[in-house]
């Protein structure tokens, strides 16, 4: 475990120094994400000109949900997104060979090697937005509640990464990379809104087989409406289930991997 932590420290150091070689791009990317945050905040402000409640939440509660979503987004962008973006390329070009021969988990290398330093700064901004939303809401809350909320959001980010990995893993058999990312980013749109706006079979799908509504909505529900064992059990089961499923698929995929000709 310690070996992996030390290795991850090296990944962070190397990625950060690489990011600073292209400083203009580094700051452009930070600016782009800040505009993305601004667009989302403006969207909710305008929507709440038309309605006092959205999915059972007031404007202030929805802002806390939105800030939570931005934290999940920034976490995944910082830790996983760049790596997952290049995952199909590594499989198609045979670059996976270099990871397989190393004396550490190949999946660890593939998922975590590139740390997005610019997105880390955006994570700090997202946490700032969350603090602002919490102060605005004038809610009674304890440090422990906030810590639990952040922990659930981190689990949401892990689930987000699992789903992205699940969508790109078929590259072992299909050899087509870019269209798989497209499918994932289309589905991500569903997590940007509170889960209770969805109804019927779409809602059932979005909290089970395609659990995009769990990533930011369930943590926000448990934070805003009080801890609920049923929600927590549902959340934990889905995260555990997808972790097992993705790890199994990864192993099956590796068996089909045929180096550069894959």
């Amino acid at each position: 475990m310690l070996r992996y932590l030390v290795l991850y420290g090296h990944f962070v150091r190397f990625s950060t120094s690489k990011a600073f070689e292209f400083r203009v791009d580094f700051f452009f990317r930070i600016f782009m994400d800040l505009i993305y945050y601004g667009v989302n905040i403006v969207f909710y402000q305008v929507v709440f000109l038309q309605t006092p409640l959205l999915g059972g939440w007031t404007r202030d509660q929805s802002l806390i949900f939105l800030a939570g979503y931005l934290v999940v987004d920034a976490l995944t962008m910082t830790i996983f997104s760049n790596n997952l973006w290049w995952f199909p390329v590594a499989v198609n070009r045979g670059d996976l060979d270099y990871y397989l021969v190393r004396p550490v988990s190949a999946l660890f290398f593939l998922l975590l090697r590139d740390f997005a330093a610019n997105s880390f700064l955006n994570l700090l901004f997202a946490l700032g937005i969350l603090t602002w939303a919490l102060v605005r809401a004038h809610m009674e809350m304890h440090g422990l509640d906030i810590a639990a909320y952040l922990l659930l959001l981190a689990l949401g980010a892990w689930l987000h990464a699992l789903m992205h990995l699940l969508v790109v893993l078929p590259v072992f058999w299909t050899q087509s990379g870019s269209s798989l990312h497209g499918i994932f980013y289309n589905l991500v749109r569903f997590m940007e809104r509170p889960d209770r706006i969805y109804t019927g079979w779409v809602r059932k799908l979005l909290v089970t087989a395609l659990p995009f509504c769990l990533m930011a909505s369930f943590p926000a529900r448990m934070f805003l409406e009080g801890f609920a064992w049923r929600l927590m059990a549902h959340f934990a089961l889905v995260v555990a289930g997808f972790t097992v499923m993705v790890l199994s698929l990864w192993k099956i995929g590796l068996r089909s991997y045929a180096s550069a000709s894959s």
């Binding site: 959205l54 999915g55 269209s179 289309n186 569903f190 706006i197 109804t199």
Partner: peptide, 29 residues
Amino acid sequence: AEFWLGFIGNVASQFGVAYFLWKAIFLAR
């Protein structure tokens, strides 16, 4: 295939999210 899948996925997801969002608002009010 990639062209039509990309097109349908993009339109369906944008439309789907908007449909549920505004349906919830119309119904609530």
